[in-house]
Design a protein around this nucleic acid. Structure first.
Length: 458
RNA sequence: CGGAGUGUAGCGCAGUCUGGUAGCGCACCUGCUUCGGGAGCAGGGGGUCGGAGGUUCGAAUCCUCUCACUCCGACCA
């Protein structure tokens, strides 16, 4: 991976790195596709026992799915932190008054889940947090000297979609990272926007995705500048049109200094200079004029991120003002920046699977290695597997050990289905010659590796 | 929110038209034989048939109401 040394260490998520014996795990595999699942990621997530539907658009995350969700969340967190954003955590339930102030309580419509508490007070399950964060910011910051700031949280949202579908891709309850920037001037706000832009490219690239930034509608959030980040997938909900040159760009070359305004702007410039648009913003004439025919890519995409620069849209009505150097009170310039964390789980599967199952990019894989004991119960294979399992554990390699007393065929099928990047296959046949078989899930390549050097592979 | 459909065992389904002992495959449990890409045989466990009313000697099946879920269209991280 492009950014070696990234890890979950230092966060509670590190606890998720523990290895596991399949005989002691909870991973209810289905052999058949549940009928309600229409798209491949939904089918695979259900078949792998990653999620379970509790109501339309609401899911329980079972152990395997939970691990992936947490890994994605942690990558998002690391890249937000690196770009200078500061993590907070706001509640899922918000008072309606906050939304009355911004005027969105009525404007948001039925998509907002409205509830009353025991005192008959109007509450709501937050679909987003512009109002709340602006209020928090307003109370905490009074001077231009306290700017810029960018606060984010990773929290469950609820949008009472008319028609939830496609599993976690369009759930009603979903995990979203949302960040909010506050600046004194338009120019400074633009830099904050640009930093998020670059960090998004990097965040998605770390997950093995090429998420193409496209000029977007601002929708109910409102504002001036907006980009959506879309990954290509046939089952995507948006039509996309873009220059093939995007796919050939170096998606790993923006390990830049986020304080370098010019450098950040150049990356944004680089990634916005080529044509890329969703069907909403698509201009066929411009597409034809700017993109040579051979380079025109049309297809479908999944929106995994969306950034907005909306200036003073919320700061003005909500009185989020600071005192400038000249002593005057000015409303702050803001932007908001979302990443669909739970949607990404489905999105990555849509972008990375084959006939046999999921193919996890290593950075988000629930385990790095699947250790297959082909003959559980046989003293020699048991002992060899046990040694390898312990050694991988000691080395900090996340391993799922299939120690069940099952037939080899089923174990292979299960391991392919859940898509761990590496399979280490141990059977009497290989053991006789002191070798293990190492299979790369993505390429299908198998290699015989001497047991003595096996550990060096991981 | 308009249109279409489905609810029967963990999953996939039959049975409903024509009322009469709740079934099949996979999964699960036991035993034996197997064991390098989803084995075979034998035995076994598991269901208030989405819910509530009604008709009937008798309802998964007929009637009424209701709930949930899925799909297609207009909206969205």
């Amino acid at each position: 991976m492009p950014w070696p040394g990234e890890s979950l260490k230092g966060w509670p998520d590190g606890e998720l790195r523990i290895p596991m014996r399949l005989s002691q795990y909870f991973m209810p595999i289905l052999r058949d596709d549940p009928k309600e699942a229409e798209i491949v990621s939904h089918k695979l997530m259900l078949r792998c026992g990653m999620i379970r539907q509790e109501a339309a658009g609401c899911y329980s995350w079972l152990p395997l799915g939970f691990r992936v969700l947490k890994k994605i969340e942690q990558i998002v967190r690391e890249e937000q932190n690196r770009a200078g954003a500061i993590e907070v955590l706001m509640p899922t339930i918000q008072p309606a008054d906050l939304w009355r102030k911004s005027g969105r309580y009525d404007a948001y419509g039925k998509e907002m889940l409205r509830i009353k508490d025991r005192h008959d007070r109007d509450m709501l399950f937050g679909p987003t947090n512009e109002e709340m964060i602006t209020d928090i910011f307003r109370q905490g910051v009074k001077s231009y000297k306290d700017l810029p700031r960018n606060l984010y949280h990773i929290q469950w949202k609820f949008r009472d979609e008319v028609r939830p579908r496609f599993g976690v891709m369009r759930g009603r309850e979903f995990l979203m990272k949302d960040a909010y920037s506050f600046d004194l001037t338009r120019e400074a706000g633009q830099h904050s926007y640009n930093k998020m832009f670059v960090s998004y490219l990097k965040t998605f690239a770390r997950m093995g995705l090429k998420a193409v930034p496209m000029r977007a509608e601002t929708g109910p959030i409102g504002g001036k500048d907006s980009h959506e980040f879309l990954i290509l997938a046939e089952t995507g909900e948006s039509g996309v049109f873009f220059d093939r040159a995007f796919l050939d760009m170096d998606w790993t070359a923006f390990d830049i200094d986020y304080d370098d305004v010019g450098a950040v702007a150049r990356v944004v410039e680089d990634f916005t200079s080529k044509y890329a648009a969703t069907d909403e913003k698509h201009d066929a004439a411009e597409f034809d004029r700017r993109v040579p025919e051979a380079a025109r890519v049309t297809g479908r995409g999944i929106e995994v991120g969306h950034i907005f620069f909306f200036g003073t849209k919320y700061s003005e009505p909500m009185g989020a003002v600071v005192q400038g150097p000249d002593g005057k009170m000015v409303p702050v310039e803001s932007g908001s920046y979302g990443i669909g964390v739970s949607r990404l789980v489905g999105g990555i599967i849509e972008a990375s699977h084959d006939e046999a199952g999921i193919i996890w990019p290593e950075a988000v894989a629930p385990f790095k290695v699947g250790l297959i004991n082909l003959k559980a119960g046989d003293a020699d294979t048991d002992a060899a597997c046990e040694t390898i399992y312990k050694a991988l554990e000691a080395k900090g390699v996340e391993v799922l050990y299939d120690d069940r007393d099952e037939r080899p065929g089923g174990k292979f099928a299960t391991m392919d289905l859940i898509g761990l990047p590496w399979q280490v296959i141990i059977g009497p046949r290989g053991l006789k010659d002191g070798i293990a078989e190492v299979k790369n899930r993505k390429t299908g390549e198998r290699e015989n590796v001497a047991l003595a050097t096996l550990l060096e592979r991981f």
